[in-house]
Design a protein around this nucleic acid. Structure first.
Lengths: 208, 208
DNA sequence: CGATTAACGAAACTGGGGTCCCGTTATGAG
DNA sequence: CTCATAACGGGACCCCAGTTTCGTTAATCG
């Protein structure tokens, strides 16, 4: 009875609809990775995905909206974290994972493009934030374990420590031309661990 | 005698040419700040700058190319650093400066847009890297002074310490919706200082 | 299984971003 | 001051991204 029906793809999400979505997201990821976010149009993506142009425009409408959906999809594919028994070991494992991802030509370019897209629209930005919230939540427990072991002071902001590991790697990816190597990953982990031990991430300091 | 003459604006860079460049860069900055990088076309910028559309296309050609020129312009306007006498004080001053810049609605949006643009073309990326090289070089000496004072170990990578201050702020700007407040700036400075004191940024560790 | 209709897709259409042409302005050299 | 021409700018033009229309296919329900 509602004057306007819900978003297309919500009533019959199975079969063809799901296939179309998968093909389009695949094509979008490929195109973003090799062409970047700038000169990117939905018509091109439709051709690549071998899907009707009309369909892409109807279901996503804009490039940023499509990227937002791509991020929802990426958020669901979370990798389980590894546990090493020490804070530094865990943070290094995390840093290496991020470094490998960003250093990979396709993945690195994709992440750059996705961040660029999030810059342009609130909805896409929200999807990106959600993506990183999930990733950070996945790894935060290792800091709590370090607190329990007495490696870092009580009241340390676990999420902030995890973010501190990724930050230098992303900063380097975006603002310098230097390659992301293992040394950069290890340095990021060591710096975060040292700062955490020194109490730089106590909750009382930055009461969000 | 060369078959193709040099870029327009290089032979007679004075008077009108300079005025046009200034007007276009101003308009580009404004548009980037309020509309973002995505749906941005040179025709619109030409209208804003009250300059012939043809001129903009002839001199810059693409949006990313224009952003690259804008970055060259921004790189020249470097703010002098302040000196406080201690590493933590200097790093906090730097962190506060970055934080104020990124938290400012216009400047923050502009930086986001510029980073997004650098994602899309090598030439723009190079201009962005150059911009940050200059900024980092401006502040690196304060770390060297800390080394001389014995605050941080010999062989500490001064540039890496300065980057470590900015990294969490940019990471937060781009991947989270949280506001950048003074607490975040101070935390970034404290973490970098603590990690530097602990020897996390020794050159031997990450021999670039 | 059918019947209903959500969702897809081919084709025609449109508007504005980007290009080209050529006349006008004013810079910089002599 | 004068001149050659670098650089600008108006306007016509074109291409293709994005929209609309309507017929076709197939997902879901009974």
């Amino acid at each position: 009875m509602s004057s306007e029906s819900a978003e297309p793809g919500t009533v019959r999400p199975g079969g063809r609809t799901a296939r179309v979505r998968a093909a389009v997201l695949q094509a979008a990821g490929d195109t973003l990775a090799e062409r970047g976010f700038a000169h990117l149009d939905l018509a091109d993506i439709a051709r690549r995905a071998e899907v009707g142009k009309t369909t892409v425009y109807r279901r996503w409408g804009t490039v940023t909206s499509l990227v937002a959906d791509l991020l929802m999809d990426m958020a669901e594919q979370s990798l389980p974290r590894t546990e090493t028994g020490s804070l530094l070991g865990d943070l290094k494992a995390n840093a290496r994972l991020v470094q490998r991802t960003l250093a990979d030509p396709r993945q690195g370019a994709l992440f750059k493009a996705v961040i660029a897209a999030a810059t342009c629209e609130a909805k896409t930005a929200e999807a990106l934030h959600h993506f990183y919230d999930i990733r950070v939540n996945e790894w935060a427990p290792c800091v709590q374990q370090a607190i329990d072991r007495g490696e870092v002071p009580e009241g340390t902001d676990a999420h902030e420590v995890i973010r501190a590991v990724s930050a230098p790697l992303y900063y380097r990816l975006l603002t310098s031309g230097d390659r992301l190597d293992e040394a950069a990953a290890d340095r990021a982990a060591e710096a975060a661990a040292a700062a955490a031990r020194a109490g730089a991430y106590l909750l009382s300091k930055g009461l969000v």
